[in-house]
Design a protein around this nucleic acid. Structure first.
Lengths: 143, 143
DNA sequence: TATTTAATTGCAACAATGATGCACTATTAA
DNA sequence: TTAATAGTGCATCATTGTTGCAATTAAATA
């Protein structure tokens, strides 16, 4: 899936800012914050353009917005496993701050209060990613 | 549990802003945003005092901070079911915006990628609360 | 009760994030 | 190639969160 195909499929024009954002997101597995996006192309686009473009891409279902428990925000591509699902499960590494989309779903195993209706469940798993675990204790030797 | 007892138990002085915040939170089940807190005592305390007080109460484990998917923030009292648990499950009503702490725990039923370590799971359930459901279709009659 | 001191508060200032209006520019359809 | 539309940059503003410092207050002590 190329950037151009993604945009065309949703009836969006093939503009500079969109190409950059989607190009960056396609390059990697992990989600990106606005700051990380800016760092990868400093001064290329206005801050407002970045916000508006992210909003457009989100509205058209090309990316989704992830809010972490420190209320920082990241954006990730909608991939196949996002189709038709209201469930979002993300992994946040407390060491390197990376965020990944996970495929499994989460379950809430208690009853909701009487009369309450569930629409969707948003799950964030906090932990440490494999790369940071390796960095913390090389060759399985505890420090 | 009175406000004074709560504060004394954590070695905190019995000050005006703390008494107001905890008083408001004790009155209700649901979490409150900074705006809601300000509305209940306009101009009584400076905005900065409010922030600092909320931070102090959070640091001492008296309240906890809840970040919703629209990155708004609410605060709720730590009650008994929060003791010793890294799990936070909250219900957010999309109609009235109320947030409740739930007692059940959530499970993630797929494997994490190899080498990843889970530390905690944060769950937000989006839905409609009982009061809003009743308001939407009184006497079980669908509109 | 008066005094002391350490913690709390208010104010001013600032930073980051997010939003809107408007003019200018670029994309794409004709 | 040229219109029409959509996207972009700039100016400006709102909200949320932070810090430093001086003034005030709680509560411990005399």
């Amino acid at each position: 899936m190329t950037v151009e195909e993604l945009l065309q499929a949703r009836g969006l024009k093939n503009t500079g800012c969109r190409k950059y954002i989607l190009g960056e997101l396609l390059k990697r597995e992990s989600a990106m914050s606005e700051t990380e996006l800016k760092e990868s192309y400093p001064n290329l686009f206005d801050r407002v353009t970045l916000y508006r473009t992210l909003k457009t891409l989100e509205d058209r279902g090309i990316i989704h917005r992830i809010v972490l428990c420190d209320n920082s925000v990241k954006y990730a591509l909608n991939r196949n496993h996002h189709e038709g699902s209201a469930q979002h499960t993300h992994f946040h590494c407390g060491k390197c701050d990376e965020v990944l989309c996970l495929k499994g779903t989460a379950h809430f195993d208690a009853e909701l209060p009487k009369g309450f209706v569930l629409e969707s469940v948003i799950v964030t798993i906090e932990g440490v990613c494999a790369a940071c675990m390796r960095a913390a204790r090389p060759r399985s030797v505890k420090s």
